[in-house]
Design a protein around this nucleic acid. Structure first.
Lengths: 351, 351
DNA sequence: AGGTACCGTGGGAGCGCTCCCACAAGTGAT
DNA sequence: ATCACTTGTGGGAGCGCTCCCACGGTACCT
């Protein structure tokens, strides 16, 4: 054999040009094959593919990014401290869903925390450098300036929970209203007469919608809504514990609780236990998220399941559309780019 | 004002060339300023910095990567399923430590899971494309082929727990032997006479070393080692529970347990509770990692603390050295590139 | 037969940077 | 004054790709 230019030898990596020479074609043709263009004859394609395999050719991402002005990467931005990311199963579930949706793509996923001011500055710099083609925004609070920044920079973005009913960014969400409603309807069916709720942070739109669902379910069943039965948590376990303690103090007679997240439900369980209330005999408890916590709690927690996997898929799909659409300035009609997916109540021993 | 080429206008971003023109210098000089080269006069530097600020210039990463043949990114590779990453606080602590160590750098950190075969193939492709300058390997099992792959591709790497006493890669570890030893010595001091241990996966070198520490502490105190007191877990909570149950069955008289991780200690606690043993009155319990679990357990868990933050720093520091050294083929002596950091026993109510 | 269409293909230009060589100007020893 | 360095600077070349224009060939219409 003349030459020994196999892939085994490390050092320099083969380039497009070398593949072209080996396959006896031009550079452009190899590029077309690599990028799956249909305008290549079958014979040529086969020859190129053989050359690629023989040489162990792997495209140089940097060169491609420079020439094509894209990075083939998207960022999952979590505007929360890292700690919360790991504590709150919602995030890790979301990461998994998005990762799964992306795994049949060439796109790379970057996880970026933007909890502290320092991290935010870093992120701003990062986005200014256009190091990603698009951004997935998870858990954004109502007054967060991040979406505006993305708008200025003209970086496509999709948000996981809309910030309000007038969200301008494409968004994906579960049916928080319906979910809250179904939780409360379930408690009513179980015979609860005094149902409290522990809400998430009120600057999160989804948390508000769950409360709306709570309210309407009670009203439609002919109950009136006692504002003292609405305690606000902050999505943390400790917040749930505290809210539950307050509720028990102000309304000792309550017999059902809808917590706005499983983690808060876990906190509520603690408070109930400390107060000597049995679950579900004295107080029935329902959570939200159907995370691992719910299944492992004692007793197992009834919870509202959000189709996280599907939500991840939907977000990716919206974002990729957004990225693709960015180039031609065609009039993208006002087709609804707000996806809402249904929830499902998972009934367990806690209610 | 003539022109309106400020940073506000989006669309095209300013290039080096434009900054150079604005500052009235050459391209090379701007590059030197951007990269902090000392061979620039103060006056010129100031002029360039002003131009950079006025134009809102941000370097194009892709162009830089292509020209300089580096990516300014490193990967944290976790050869475990995603689930374990989120379950096991060790990983998130490590991520935090590494992230902190990297935050005063320009380097970007990528988190990559390589739990499934599919993910591993993706990773291999990724590494073959040289999309990172270096790799941090966390929790590698003895027979993992990943380190070899990295070697072939000549990608600098640092491993978080050496695979054996003959580790060839630069590595960072806590003193597992000393940690295990101190845990057992502590139990002996507390008056325990029959001390069991729940080990981590035996193909993890660190787990072995903790057992060695356990053994030696007992031997040095004049006890003999009863093999029935050594039960193997797999670092999971369920594994800890099962191992504890076995230990209780075979050695009902035990009064002290050293668990190889906090998560397994949590499992052990369950089993102890189910068996009606009180902690620490009937059985004293010590964990390893000093993770959040330890502090929140009931009773709070005595645990061996590894200086994760420092370990992160050490890993980064080793890796950056490795990357820097890669270029000149100088004879890098055999200076020990194996860092071992001391542990510290955090005493709490469980012992 | 000539015209028009398209297909598959080759290769120039250029993406924005870094590297390095060349060169002018200054410094100090001889 | 001469030579040898050093310091700061400009700009050519080139990194490996994509984009796009141009071109020869074949097919199908007049």
């Amino acid at each position: 054999m003349a030459g020994h230019g196999g892939r085994g030898r490390s050092g320099r990596r083969p380039t497009l040009e070398e593949v072209a020479a080996r396959a006896g074609v031009g550079r452009g043709t190899v590029s077309r094959v690599i990028n799956g263009s249909p305008r290549v004859s079958d014979a040529t394609r086969a020859a190129v593919e053989a050359a690629v395999a023989e040489l162990g050719y792997v495209p140089n991402t940097a060169a491609r990014a420079l020439a094509a002005n894209r990075t083939d990467a998207i960022a999952l931005v979590v505007p929360e401290p890292e700690r919360r990311f790991f504590t709150e199963p919602y995030f890790s579930d979301m990461l998994r869903g998005v990762g799964a949706a992306l795994s049949d793509t060439e796109m790379q996923l970057l996880l970026i925390f933007a909890g502290s001011d320092r991290e935010r500055r870093r992120l701003a710099q990062y986005l200014a450098a256009h190091r990603v083609d698009g951004v997935l925004l998870v858990s954004v609070h109502a007054d967060d300036p991040l979406p505006d920044l993305l708008g200025q920079l003209e970086i496509p973005a999709v948000i996981s929970g809309p910030r309000s009913e007038r969200e301008t960014l494409p968004s994906v969400d579960s049916d928080n209203y319906g979910g809250g409603r179904s939780a409360v309807e379930h408690l009513l069916e179980r015979g609860c007469s005094t149902i409290a709720t522990i809400t998430g942070r009120l600057d999160v739109y989804g948390a508000q919608r769950r409360i709306d669902g709570y309210r309407d379910a009670l009203l439609d069943a002919g109950h009136e809504v006692d504002e003292r039965l609405i305690a606000s948590g902050d999505f943390t376990e400790e917040g749930g514990r505290r809210a539950m303690a307050e509720l028990l103090a102000s309304c000792p007679g309550l017999d059902g609780v809808f917590a706005g997240s499983d983690v808060m439900a876990a906190g509520a369980r603690q408070a109930l236990r400390e107060a000597g209330r049995r679950i579900p005999d004295d107080v029935a408890l329902v959570g939200y998220d159907d995370s691992a916590i719910a299944r492992h709690m004692d007793p197992p927690l009834t919870s509202v399941r959000q189709p996280i996997e599907e939500m991840g898929h939907a977000m990716i799909s919206l974002l990729l559309d957004e990225i693709a659409d960015q180039r031609p300035a065609v009039s993208r009609g006002l087709e609804r780019r707000q996806v809402v997916l249904p929830t499902q109540l998972m009934t367990r021993a806690s209610s």
